[in-house]
């Protein structure tokens, strides 16, 4: 008698835990071999829980040493490399060719490595010491914007997801990301990678579900500082909702992630510039002044 295969229950990822959606709802996605997977149809409440988790994780993640964040992002690449075959299979299962799937997984791994390297460099490369004429020491550094919601591109389902998450968390933000609707399996499996990569719970939260239902809530939540949108249908509405609390709304639909993802300016888009002043006693001819 042949062995019965154990099928996986696809869950969402909130605060380092793997719940099913609180709503109990699902939507079916059929694989090429005919297997039907029941994907979590995440609700507004799931989003709200995820934002709470992301907000709670923000202080710890943003105040980690940049070098430490760098190592953790590199660790994600290590874990992804080790699970490469599984990701290729999952992409093939929803219709990709083996060659294309392999390429997508490899580029995704490399993208993690690319942004791992930026963690402790971008503040040096893009910060400044400002030569004010008064007797003050004055410098500008980047700091993370805060909690970022992301609606990932429909495809490429893994590379798009990874390309959005990496620049956001490399800079110390935490995020909630909505996976590709028709190819969500790799996103769920990527959560398992994150979970075994020393990424603290809540830094990345991954939901599956319908854009039409969730775009409104991703962009209108008042404790979200920025929203990244990688699709087209709801752009205007998302930008309008941004005005509710002056969210930074980033339109990343324009990027071809195969060619354009390696770019530190993407990382800077979820950064704030902070400028600090302090008096200096008696330099040059300038007067010291409080």
């Amino acid at each position: 008698m042949s062995r019965l295969e154990v099928l996986k229950t696809y869950k969402i990822y909130i605060g380092g835990q793997f719940p099913r959606t609180e709503s109990g709802r699902f939507y079916p996605v059929e694989l090429k071999n005919g297997t039907v997977t029941n994907i979590c149809l995440s609700s507004r409440k799931d989003l709200r829980n995820a934002v709470v988790a992301a907000r709670n994780a923000f202080e710890g993640w943003s105040s980690r040493a940049a070098f430490n964040r760098s190592q953790i992002l590199y660790r994600i690449a290590e874990m992804l490399e080790g699970r490469k075959a599984q990701f290729v299979e999952e992409l093939v299962a929803v219709g990709a060719s083996r060659a294309a799937a392999t390429k997508e997984v490899e580029v995704s791994i490399d993208r993690c490595v690319y942004f791992a390297g930026w963690c402790d460099k971008f503040t040096q490369a893009f910060g400044s010491v400002n030569p004010v004429p008064s007797s003050h020491f004055n410098f500008s550094v980047h700091e993370p914007t805060g909690v970022v919601t992301i609606i990932a591109p429909e495809s490429p389902s893994l590379l798009g997801l990874v390309s959005c998450i990496m620049p956001v968390i490399a800079g110390g933000n935490t995020c909630v990301i909505l996976a590709s609707e028709n190819s969500p399996h790799v996103a769920v499996t990527f959560a398992e990678v994150l979970n075994s990569s020393d990424v603290p719970g809540g830094v990345v939260n991954i939901l599956t579900g319908k854009e039409d239902e969730l775009a409104e809530h991703f962009s209108s939540h008042m404790d979200v500082n920025a929203t990244i949108y990688c699709r087209e249908k709801h752009l205007k509405r998302i930008q309008e909702n941004g005005a509710l609390n002056v969210k930074r709304v980033l339109n990343w639909a324009k990027y071809d992630w195969n060619k354009q993802g390696e770019d530190p300016y993407l990382l800077l888009e979820t950064q704030e510039v902070k400028t600090t002043w302090h008096p200096i006693e008696n330099i040059a001819g300038a007067k010291s002044g409080y």
Binding site: S128, N130, P131, V132, P133, S134, H136, N138, S140, E272, V273, K274, T275, T276, W277, H278, P279, G289, Y290
Partner: peptide, 16 residues
């Protein structure tokens, strides 16, 4: 975005 330590309300063209 701007933090003044032991000073306040200082501005300069070179200072974001």
């Amino acid at each position: 975005g701007v933090v003044w330590a032991n000073t306040y309300n200082k501005f300069d063209p070179t200072s974001p």
